[in-house]
Structure formats: structure tokens, C-alpha cells
Design a binder for these strands. Sequence first.
DNA 1: TTGTAAGCGTTATCAG
DNA 2: CTGATAACGCTTACAA
Lengths: 339, 339
Amino acid sequence: MPRKITLKQIAKELDVSVSTVSKSLKDSPEISLDTKEKVKAFAKLYNYKPNNIALSLKNRKTKTIGIIIPEIVHHFFTTVIQGIEHVANEKGYNVIICLSNNSFDKEVLNLEFLANGSTDGFIMSIAKETQQKEDYHHIKEVINQGMPVVMFDRVIDEVICDKVVISDKHGAFEAVQYLIDHHCKKIAIISTVDYVSVGKLRTEGYKDALITNDMEIDQDLILKIEDVDHSEEKIEEFLKNKNVDGIFAVNEQFAVNAIKVLKKLHKKVPEDVSVIGFTDGVVSKSFIPSLSTVNQHGEEMGAKAANLLIDRLENEAEEQSFQTTVLDTSLIIRDSVKK
Amino acid sequence: MPRKITLKQIAKELDVSVSTVSKSLKDSPEISLDTKEKVKAFAKLYNYKPNNIALSLKNRKTKTIGIIIPEIVHHFFTTVIQGIEHVANEKGYNVIICLSNNSFDKEVLNLEFLANGSTDGFIMSIAKETQQKEDYHHIKEVINQGMPVVMFDRVIDEVICDKVVISDKHGAFEAVQYLIDHHCKKIAIISTVDYVSVGKLRTEGYKDALITNDMEIDQDLILKIEDVDHSEEKIEEFLKNKNVDGIFAVNEQFAVNAIKVLKKLHKKVPEDVSVIGFTDGVVSKSFIPSLSTVNQHGEEMGAKAANLLIDRLENEAEEQSFQTTVLDTSLIIRDSVKK
DNA sequence: TTGTAAGCGTTATCAG
DNA sequence: CTGATAACGCTTACAA
């Protein structure tokens, strides 16, 4: 029933001015103890809380962070959000989340909308379509308007801002190196198409590992998948008659599907083929055999991104130069590889 | 470089009044075509976009929806968010997401904060701790202040507002009925502790199914797990020497762990034991054997909740009475049960 | 056709 | 010690 009470109403009730009320509630020394008590008591009684919107308008800052990500039904992104949310909250910020659904247009819309006063800055990972189009004007624009942006995971070199990534290449390298160290001679990679930056980087890591170990790079052992939905068929076709003894998959789904296909082909994991995936999700742990993966440390990534952004927001004066933070991956060895 | 431009600045540049600018941009007939053109051109040139915060203050509505959920690294909740986000966006709303991390205090804080002007209404699922404490004053309070609230999944009878739930009981019933129909004689349930409402309801559905089929309810076949982290051990202990031929688990994790334990105990799924879980997540599909589940239709749930909320927001006049929408579950039969 | 002014809820400055 | 006023950015009666 009692709509939110405002300073004005309190003032009227108590027959003082609005500014007196405001000052009293902030315990200003200007105001007599008497009135302060009175005001505070009244305010408490009516459960007064300042209106955030009014504050935002006045202070020209909203204390909220915009997160724009391609999708939310995705374990990695939720861990990142978790990380962001955690530090944001600790520092008195809220987060408002928008999904681009990997659509360029929606990314642009979201960004533009949130940039008009709704948030103080952004943490974002680029939509697939945007990477494909290579059109980043919307991001550059908000940056130009003075809003700090932190990019994570899928980042863009030509956009100048703080970035947080994992060492995709190095993570892939380590995974493949592990396979090599454990006597795999014929190692395949199941990757995404090249315009997805992480797919590209992980493929490079794979190649580097082979080269470093004087092994040949065989294009026939490199599969690039465009459409996740039909990956299992693609993988089956790919693995048939190949006789690989190691597989590095650039995500969890591909790894799981690879193992399924291997079972169909009557190959044993890890006895005949060792498999390592990328991204440590719920499936990896639960799967039988449990999946070895390159852990992306999403939560850490989110936390770092949030810290970077908030630092910028709160020290706008100091024009620090932009930094790219590279977080280490770590190899989680489970039952899908020889040990 | 160019900080966001405001009406005032445009007005000054063009040497007209602020209201003229405002009206021009809204294509008001009051203004001469000439000035309108001029203003619009200038505005476009400088990429003018109205400030949302100012609009919110003026209109006393923010066009944003607050979502408060217990956790985000959880497939079901992300699908709900997806559903909410989709319809919210379609109708011109943004969503701001806060996590309670299942903590009562954080839930209170979030709610209070967002209620102070940041959002127009809430969609929420209660924290576990809140259910335990049975303290819902914070929710009642925002409702009293005139903010619409829609609860989903974990809902509270004594809080009067719109609700969206699935027929937990009926979903459980169907699952158990399926097991019975496929010749299971000794069916166990792996559930959560009773204060989690869904756990309780699903257990009731289980019991109902047994009763309906003239089967005995054996307390020894009912496991209630408090702590998800050690569920596998609990389940192992529970299943040892029990010789069940059917298991109904109230979530995906329990189902997966049950199957793992069964493997350890050298029981075959589904030949020796049929297993059905609740919630259809990524793991269910990927798992071997793929998991039969009761599908919760999270996205639908989110969409429904968002529609309910937005309806209320936009038809505040009509004091419709509150409704509880019960969505149907559906049984997804995969390889973990006999067919 | 254009401009003035009030108001959304706050706070800060300055005057009384 | 208290209050009036302006300002944040915008919209909208109402005046001119």
C-alpha cells in the first residue's frame, strides 16, 4: 500500500525543508541533533530509501555494469558472470545482462541502449556474427563516448580497451603436448571455423605442439566444424578410417561427441584413443569416462574483468594505458587419456 | 571523445529552446517543418539518443525487470533467463540479474536495492536459505510498495502474487508411473531435504504413483540428500544391498551419480535398473546411457513469467486477481530406461 | 510556432 | 542551524 516515500513527503510531514531532511539523513553536522533524530526516526518508520534513479541522474553514474554476451545457456559464460557478479557486488555495483544471441544487430542494439545512461561501463564477449562481419564500430563508439569497455574471451585486436583472455594457444599446446608425451603418434584436432578467434588460436597451439615435437602437420587430421548441431555426424565421417590415437577437441561438446563416435567405431577411450577437450563444464566431470580438459577458469576471468572495469570507473583521472590480461589455463587430467 | 550530447547542448548550438528540440525530435506538429528538419539533422549528426535515466526518472518507470535467482551456473536457471530475456526484449524491457547465491541476506539486499527505482518489477525464485527460514517479509514489502512480483519454480504460498510453476508432483508421478509400467517393482527415489519445496512435491508425486498402483511405500527406498557435493557417497551407501530395479532422481546430478554408483555395483542400466531424472540439461543428453528425464521447460517458464509481469506493469489499472500458472512437464525417454 | 516553467528525487551550494 | 535554489536530462502543459 505505502508507495515508496520521498524526501519531499518526509519534509512536508515534518514541516521542514527537503534539504534539511536530506542533510539529516546524511548526518550532516549542519543540522541540530534534535531535528536529525526526528527525521531519522520518521525515515526509518516509513522505511525511506533513496531513489537510485534520481541518484544516478544526479551523480551521472549508475553503479551498474553492462554485460553483453553471446548466450547464457552455456556453462563457460555463466561462470564468467558469476565471477563478475561477485566482485561487482562486493564493490557496490549491479550487473545488467544482455544477450546478443550471437547476432550482430542485437549486439549493436543492446550496446547502444545500455550506453544511454543505463550503465557506467561494459564487459563483453563478441557475437560470432560480429566477428564474421568484422564490424566493430558500435564498440568503438561507446568507447569514444567515454565508456570503459573490457572484452573477454572473444576479443578484437583492433578495438582498443582492456582485455582478459586465456592463453588459448598455450592451453592447446599443453593439451597436445600431453598427448604426445603419452605416446600419441597420430593426433587429430576438432576445431571450429577460423573466424571464431578462439578456434583459430587453439588450432595454432595444436600445430605448434606438433612442430615443436618434430611431428608432421597433416591437414587430414584437422577438422573444422561450422555447425555445432550436426557435429556428431561430421565427426563420425572424419574419424572413420583414420586410426588416430589422440584427439584434441576445442570444446566440450566436440570432445563428448568424439568419444561417442569412437565407441561406435569400437575404439576404447583411453586405451586406443586419448581425448582432451577444452572448457571444463558439468558434462566433463559427469561423463564416462570423465573428460580431460583445458580449464578456462571462467570465474577468474569474470572477476578480473570486473576488477579492471571498476578500476577504470573509479580512477577516471589517471589515464592508464590499456592492458590485456592473459590468464593461464590448466590441464585437468581425468579418465579420457592415458596416464 | 564526444561525450554524449544532450537536448540542452543541441538547443544551445541551434539557438532554440530545449522544448523546441524535444518536440522536434518527437515530430510534434507544433513545430515548423523547417526547425524540425534542422534539429533532426543536427541530432542525427551528433548521434543524439535520449538518456534513459532521465526518462526513467520522469516517467517513473525504468522499463527494466529485475531477476533474482539463487544461482546462475545452473542449466535450468539459464534457460529460464533465456525465456525471460527473449520476451522482455521483444517488449522493450531490459533485465537486470542478481544472484542470491542461496543466501537470505543477499536476497534481501538485492531486492531492497533494486526496488528503489532500479526496476519496475521482479521475477524471482527463492533462495534455499529463505525457504528454510520461512521469512518472506522482504518480498511482501516490495509487493506492498506496489511493485509486481512473479515467482517461479520455488514459490511460496503465503506470498500473494503471480506464480509460474511446473506440476512437480505430476511430473514425478508420470516418471514413476513409467517405471511401474515398465515392470519396475522396487523403485527408489533420490530427493532433496523437505524444505526445498520442489523436492517435497516430487517426493509426493512418487508416493502417489506408488499408492495409485497399490504398491507399498517403503521409507527405506527414500533418500533425502542435503548436500549435493557428497551425493555420490550418500547414494552409494544407499543403493548398496538394496536391489532396486528403478530409480527416480529429483535432479540431473543425482541421476547421473546414481548411474555411476550402479556401474560400480555392477548393475546394468537399463537392463537391471531403469533411471529417470528431473530437469533436462546438457548432461542428460550427452551421458551414456543418455538420461531419461522429466523436462521442466525452463524457457517456457521464463517466457510465461515475463509475460505475466509485463502484463501487470502495463495494465496497472485493471486489478486482475493473481494467478498461478502450472506448466506441464513432459517425459523425455532416452536410454536409461527400458522401453 | 516557439519558449517558459514545473516536475521526476536527489544533493550541493549558498544565503539567511 | 535551516532553507531556497540550481542542477542532473527530459517531457509537457501552458504562455507568449
